[in-house]
Nucleic acid binder design. Structure first.
Lengths: 158, 158
DNA sequence: GTTGAAAAGTGCTGCGA
DNA sequence: TCGCAGCACTTTTCAAC
């Protein structure tokens, strides 16, 4: 009998309520969260520790507006891989390109799909023509440039 | 004479070093950052306050692994809009769909590009067939399902 | 598992250089 | 503009429920 990895669901509504608050503002004091949810500060701490050990929490990150520090361009790249190319090898090479901030192995039109952040059009051209083209196994790519990021949020837990 | 909005670049290397550390771990104490960068804790505080006022900092967020809380599917959606449809109207409708976590107005193959997080295939089907199809102005969509998120990070400041 | 309070560490705010 | 020092607050821990 195969054991189901059910520990993923050993979180209750209190845990979810805590996560919801910290996902919006990671600096919110435990003491305030405790007041909101009518439990003690110690409980928040215990729950957070449990979820960290369970690996549910990836971390707390300061998020900046890339445009305000000179990164004006956000682009998506649909990547077609050559046949017989190991996906892992392409990932290893692409991960060395710092402008690639997200990479997915996908079904559908493309083999892989990447999100790229660049300073300006010159920078983007350099990344596409020099960096990406140098990756072995990439047959061709298709570029979508984001003119506006209209929505950006995390999933709403329930 | 048009005044150039040059205040975007009123940040120096110290500011960037602070951001770099907090982007990795938003809970890192100012006092430790100060030790690393060989300045006082007060300086870190002043710099952070300045950058918050400048609007460089979006916020601090707790980031979770969606899969560990039951959200197993990540998909991208290329959206074709009907001609004559106001982009803003489509955004307003799509923003009501909580599963849409990112939305871009793009050049290239698609009019818009969305990232969607769902619990399972049933949930995804519901979102695509019921929620997305109900949005006025969407002609058709193309779905890319992410089988693996190989890279996920923020831009590396320099 | 939760509580409440004590102990340790951090963030914030003046004043001085 | 930066650094130092004191105060207020938060996190963390732990015995008791």
């Amino acid at each position: 009998m195969i054991k189901k990895e059910a520990q993923n669901f050993e979180i209750d509504n209190l845990d979810i309520d805590i996560l919801k608050q910290l996902m919006v503002d990671g600096t919110k004091p435990y003491s305030e969260i405790a007041k909101d949810l009518i439990v003690s500060g110690g409980t928040i701490h215990v729950r957070m520790k449990k979820m960290q050990e369970m690996g549910i929490i990836e971390g707390t990150h300061l998020v900046i507006h890339p445009q305000k520090v000179g990164y004006d361009i956000c682009a998506f790249l649909g990547i077609f891989l050559e046949k017989g190319i190991q996906y892992k090898d392409a990932v290893a090479q692409l991960s060395k390109i710092k402008e690639v901030v997200e990479l997915h192995y996908t079904t559908g039109t493309y083999s892989m799909f990447a999100k790229i952040i660049c300073r300006d059009t010159n920078h983007l051209r350099h990344v596409l023509n020099e960096e990406i083209q140098a990756v072995e196994g990439i047959q061709r790519t298709e570029t979508l440039i984001s003119l506006e990021e209209s929505i950006k949020r995390q999933i709403e837990l329930s």
